[in-house]
């Protein structure tokens, strides 16, 4: 069952479009995302997947169209305001606080979620609950032993895990993963996939996943949408979408051609 027809979607884009000069990077994309569903967004390089994510999470402003979260139009809100409304994003290029420890990176996410950032007259470590929670998240991504290491000294795979940890710590309603396993070594990938699987199993989480690896997409997704040149060209159950001619041509064909 494709759940795009359920009553109130957690996230919806309506005619979302962005132009850079004459180039239309995302073109009139309307799509609904419902809780308990993991939607994979696939498409060739330059199809507009990350741009679509940027429009949703607020790093880019749409030329036209709307982004709606739980019924509220958030198109005009800043990235931070969207985060506070339950949109969580892990970035494709690792985007952390390079000189703060892994624990502090996660603690800052927990602190934001707890809305404790404006507390000025208490010492930060008086909020033991925030530290405990950050530590438990690090445990979940198997980085507990590296809690005092700064990201700049972590391996690429560990940085990717930390990126995922920040997203988990935010406890968003909508999880947006942008190629979470890119550049990871083969033995590290299962940890991250397991985490995404766990999140998906919670019925209230809405998960969006941009991913190139078709085996990952097949194993995790409930639904696939295909972007090609910024346009939504296919939307449906994984098996059907992968088999459809438009996808074979637009995406998988190109993959095959490249070998």
């Amino acid at each position: 069952m494709v759940s795009s027809t359920t009553a109130t979607p957690a996230l919806e884009t309506r005619g979302l479009t962005v132009r850079f000069g004459g180039h239309v990077a995302v073109n009139d994309v309307s799509c609904r995302f419902t809780p308990g569903t993991l939607t994979a967004i696939v498409g060739p390089n330059g199809a507009g997947k990350t741009t679509y994510f940027n429009l949703i999470s607020g790093q880019l402003r749409a030329t036209s169209g709307q982004v709606v979260v739980a019924g509220e139009d958030i198109t005009r809100l800043s990235a931070s305001a969207r985060t506070r409304r339950g949109l969580g994003r892990a970035f494709q290029l690792t985007n952390l606080f390079p000189q703060l420890t892994a624990l502090e990176n996660v603690r800052l996410a927990v602190q934001s979620r707890a809305d404790a950032g404006w507390s000025m007259l208490r010492v930060w470590n008086a909020r033991r609950d925030l530290i405990d929670k950050a530590e438990s998240v690090l445990e979940r991504v198997r980085l507990a032993d590296k809690r005092h290491v700064a990201p700049k000294a972590l391996s690429h795979g560990d940085q990717r895990k930390l990126e995922v940890a920040l997203l988990i710590a935010m406890e968003p309603k909508v999880f947006m993963f942008d190629e979470p396993t890119a550049g990871m070594s083969v033995d590290e990938v299962p940890t991250v996939l397991e985490l995404i699987h766990d999140i998906k199993e919670r019925r209230d989480a809405t998960v969006l996943l941009v991913e190139h690896k078709m085996d990952v997409v097949r194993s995790l997704s409930d639904r696939i949408i295909v972007l090609h040149n910024g346009t939504l060209v296919a939307d449906g159950e994984p098996a059907a979408v992968i088999a459809s001619p438009v996808v074979q041509e637009a995406y998988l064909g190109m993959e095959a051609a490249r070998g």
């Binding site: 985060t83 985007n95 606080f97 390079p98 703060l100 935010m170």
Partner: peptide, 17 residues
């Protein structure tokens, strides 16, 4: 701590809310 996070990576601090 938020100030230091902003100093380190303003973009990420904004994305964290």
């Amino acid at each position: 701590r938020v100030l230091q996070a902003i100093r380190e990576n303003e973009f990420r601090a904004e994305a964290l809310g």
